[in-house]
Design a protein around this nucleic acid. Structure first.
Length: 418
DNA sequence: TCTGGGGTCCTAGGACCC
DNA sequence: TCTGGGGTCCTAGGACCC
C-alpha cells in the first residue's frame, strides 16, 4: 500500500499559520519577483482566482475582492515543510519527501497491523494539524499513481473529508470516474486533448483502455500510467526515489541587468546552489550548461547557452565557479537587457564510481566541501560564500508583499503580549 | 511605464560514423 | 544511374508538475 500526503495549497496555508487574522480570508501567494500567482487558498479558489496567471493582469480583481496577496517566503515554507515532514514520517518507516509539500509513504508488512486505512489517514491529518496548523490531504492506493488519485479525491471531491482509500475495483471506479483525465498524474493538457479526441474524458475511461494500444498511440509513459491505474505497480519505489538526472538553478532578475559584473555574480550564485544540490544527492557533474537570456516577450529575444564539460566529474563549487568564468564571455553580450539566467548540471555521474583521468592528478576536495557545507548548513546558506558571488545584488528579486520569517529570524519571532 | 515562475524529464530529429 | 541501414550522440523544444 502507498500513501501520498500533501498540504492543501501549501504556500497559502503557511501564510495562515502565524497570522490567524487571515485564516478566514482569501489568500494567494505569488512566484518569484511577484510574477504569477502560484498558490490559491480554497476561499480564494471559490472566488475564481486562477493559478499561474500573471499578477499584474489580475491585480484589480484581487483588490476588488479583498484578497490577501503575499510574496513567496521560502525561508518560512522550508522550515514549516521540515516540521510537517517530520510529523508524517512518524507514521511509516519508509517515507520519501517528493517535493516541498508532498511525501509518499510505502507500507510493506503493515497490512496486518493496520486494518482501517481511513482511520489511519485521519490520524495523520489530525497530528499534522495539531502540531503545525497545516491542513493536509491523505490518499491511499495500491500504486503510487492511485495514491495520487486518492489524494486528489481526498482534497477535491465531496464527501471525503481529506482522506480517501483506493484499493479495490469499487473504490477505483468510484474515484476515477469522477476525475478528469488531466487530473491523473502524468497527463497534462496536451495529452488530455488528444485523449479527449479518442473519447477518453475521465480517469476511469483511461484505465479501461488497453495499455498496449496506449503505448503505440502515445508513449511508454502513458502505458505505465494505465497499468498503474489498474493496480499494477510500474513506478517501483526505487524509481520514484531515483536521483535526479539534471539539476538546475535559474531565476529571473528583480530588475533588468545589462552589466557584466551583475550577470556574472548572478551566474556564480546559481552555480553555488547547483553545487550544493548535487552534493546533497551525492552526484558529480560531468557537463554543465550556463545560460543568459532577455525576455521572450522582448522584440529581440536573446538566449544563449554554453555547455562546459569537466575533464573529471566534480562536485566542487570552486570548479563550478571556474567553469562559469570560462564560459561567461560566450553568453554575455553588451547591450542586451538580461531578464533571466541560470546554471544547470546536465550530465551527472554517481560519486561512488568516479572516472579519473590518467593524466590529471586527482585532488580530493571532499574535505573542503564537507566543511563548507557544514558551516552553511549550521549558520545559513551563504554564511561562507565565494568572492565571485559579489556583495550587492541589485538584481535581487522583487518581493513586495513578504511576510516575516517567523521561524528562522530572531527579529521575526512572534511575540505574545498580554 | 511596465510587468509574464522554476524544475525536471522525454523525445524527435539532425549530425555523424561505419 | 539510382538507391540506400543502423547505431550513437547531441540539442532544442515539448510536456508535465507544483
Amino acid at each position: 500500500m502507498y500513501a501520498l500526503v500533501d498540504a492543501v495549497s501549501f504556500y497559502a496555508s503557511c501564510e495562515k499559520v502565524f497570522d490567524p487574522f487571515i485564516r478566514n480570508k482569501p489568500v494567494v501567494v505569488l512566484t518569484n519577483n511577484d510574477g504569477c500567482i502560484c498558490a490559491v487558498c480554497p476561499i480564494a479558489r471559490r472566488l475564481g482566482v486562477p493559478k499561474f496567471k500573471p499578477y499584474f493582469q489580475i491585480k484589480h480583481f484581487l483588490a476588488k475582492h479583498n484578497v490577501v496577496v503575499r510574496s513567496s517566503n521560502y525561508e518560512l515554507y522550508a522550515s514549516l515543510s521540515d516540521k510537517m515532514m517530520n510529523v508524517i514520517g512518524r507514521f511509516c518507516d519508509n517515507q520519501y519527501v517528493y517535493s516541498i509539500d508532498e511525501s509518499f509513504l510505502q507500507f510493506k508488512n503493515y497490512q496486518t497491523m493496520i486494518n482501517d486505512w481511513h482511520a489511519y489517514g485521519a490520524e495523520i491529518r489530525r497530528a499534522v494539524w495539531k502540531e503545525t496548523r497545516l491542513p493536509v490531504g491523505v490518499g491511499f492506493g495500491s500504486t503510487p499513481t492511485l495514491a495520487k488519485a486518492a489524494n486528489h479525491a481526498a482534497k477535491k471531491l465531496a464527501g471525503y473529508n481529506g482522506v480517501a482509500v483506493v484499493d479495490d475495483v469499487v473504490s477505483r471506479k468510484e474515484v476515477l470516474s469522477k476525475m478528469a483525465v488531466t487530473d491523473v498524474w502524468g497527463i497534462g493538457s496536451k495529452l488530455g486533448k488528444r485523449l479527449n479526441v479518442l473519447g477518453i474524458n475521465n480517469a476511469w475511461e483511461l484505465a479501461n483502455r488497453s495499455p498496449k494500444s496506449m503505448r503505440s498511440q502515445f508513449s511508454v509513459v502513458v502505458e505505465r500510467t494505465v497499468n498503474e491505474l489498474n493496480g499494477i505497480v510500474c513506478l517501483n519505489w526505487d524509481e520514484v526515489k531515483q536521483a535526479k538526472k539534471e539539476i538546475f538553478s535559474t531565476r529571473s532578475f528583480g530588475q533588468r541587468v545589462n552589466d557584466e559584473h551583475s550577470l556574472k555574480t548572478a551566474l556564480v550564485s546559481h552555480g553555488v546552489i547547483v553545487g550544493r544540490k548535487v552534493r546533497r544527492q551525492q552526484s558529480l557533474i560531468k557537463r554543465i550548461v550556463i545560460f543568459a537570456a532577455s525576455s521572450p516577450h522582448d522584440d529581440n529575444y536573446y538566449n544563449k547557452s554554453i555547455v562546459y564539460e569537466f575533464p573529471v566529474a566534480t562536485d566542487n563549487t570552486l570548479n563550478i565557479a571556474n567553469a562559469i568564468s570560462a564560459a561567461f564571455s560566450g553568453v554575455y553580450v553588451s547591450g542586451v537587457n538580461f531578464y533571466r539566467c541560470g546554471v544547470g548540471a546536465i550530465t551527472l555521474e554517481n560519486s561512488q564510481f568516479q572516472q579519473h583521468d590518467l593524466f590529471i592528478p586527482s585532488e580530493d576536495s571532499s574535505e573542503l566541501m564537507h566543511c563548507y557545507d557544514g558551516i552553511n548548513n549550521r549558520y545559513g546558506n551563504d554564511t561562507l560564500q565565494l568572492a565571485a558571488q559579489g556583495r550587492v545584488e541589485k538584481w535581487r528579486m522583487r518581493r513586495d508583499f513578504l511576510s516575516p520569517s517567523y521561524t528562522s529570524k530572531w527579529r521575526d519571532i512572534p511575540k505574545i503580549s498580554c
